[in-house]
Amino acid sequence: MEGIIGYGAYIPRNRIKVEEIAKVWGADAPSYKRGLMLEEKSVPSPDQDTITMSVEASKNALKRAKIDPADIGALYIGSESHPYAVKPSGTVVAEALGVTPEAHTADFEFACKAGTEGMFVALNLVKAGVIKFGMGIGADTSQGAPGDALEYSAAAGAAAFIFGRDKIVAKIVDTYAYMTDTPDFWRREYQYYPQHGGRFTGEPAYFKHVTGAARGIMQNNDMKPEDFNYVIFHQPNGKFPLRVGKMLGFKKEQIEPGWLVNKLGNTYSGSSPLGLAATLDIAKPGDMLLLVSYGSGAGSDAFIFKVTDRIEEVRNLAPLTRDLLDKNKNYLEYGEYAKFRRKIRKAD
């Protein structure tokens, strides 16, 4: 039996409210809040990036897994904001955790799906018997161009999952992947901010792939929405995951525990993984979970997990995701946010 043996989250403490951003661009905050179902988003400090958040989320995962980091055979980080264009994030994280040198690492990039890609590969390497433990991390300090709709949602956070065969917290029932070439969102080399296709990111992109993956994995396992206690979708804004859930026949109560986006924003590669971490925080032994990510470009990974008795033992060994989200917040004004996110042009 394979599955998650430890999980951990990390969210920076800085927040900015939708009103604070809207004020600068003369936008109508109430309509943004209604339209996107967003209230505020997390913002990394200047000393935080995909690497540092990955380390902290991984340390929390290790606290729950209680294994020797040196036994981890593969460590994958999915992000669209790897700090280096060339040079892996994974080596830094592996070195900080004590995973080196006998391990495989790779940095994944597939817009917001890169995190679950890392999880997918790490998990399946464990399943294949190639490694004893594998780690998949989704982390991002995503950027939205000033004044663009993305600026209201592009947030920062990380979640890490350790997979193994013993002492499982959530057993893996099945995985599934669904993808086509759909250019709904991209960032060219040397460009600072991403571009997107506006409303094209909806129906032919997010909704098509998320429903495709969800239906595919449910069909393969002969399961229906009511067979799951909880479902976690990628959360680019508040509305999309709720709407896609409704399209598939899920109830709001199944979605809500992992629906963090209204207070967190879109943490890109960290988005659905953080939703999964928050759901594990409240799940009971025997609960069935469906995770469906989405990455522009475009594709979705789907996972079915069955929570085990061990969840009760490990849950409180590391910070709960909702606590990271709700406690110790520090609200920024736009000027400070612009400085933190390097949106101010300074002298060389």
């Binding site: 000393d47 690497i51 540092t52 380390v55 340390k59 700090p83 830094v92």
Partner: peptide, 22 residues
């Protein structure tokens, strides 16, 4: 906590290490 301490200019390496948080 693991943090970035500084960057070696715009193109140099990123320098990581420990900092303290409450």
């Amino acid at each position: 906590e693991f943090r970035k301490l500084f960057e070696q200019g715009h193109a140099g390496i990123l320098c990581y290490g420990y900092k303290f948080v409450p």
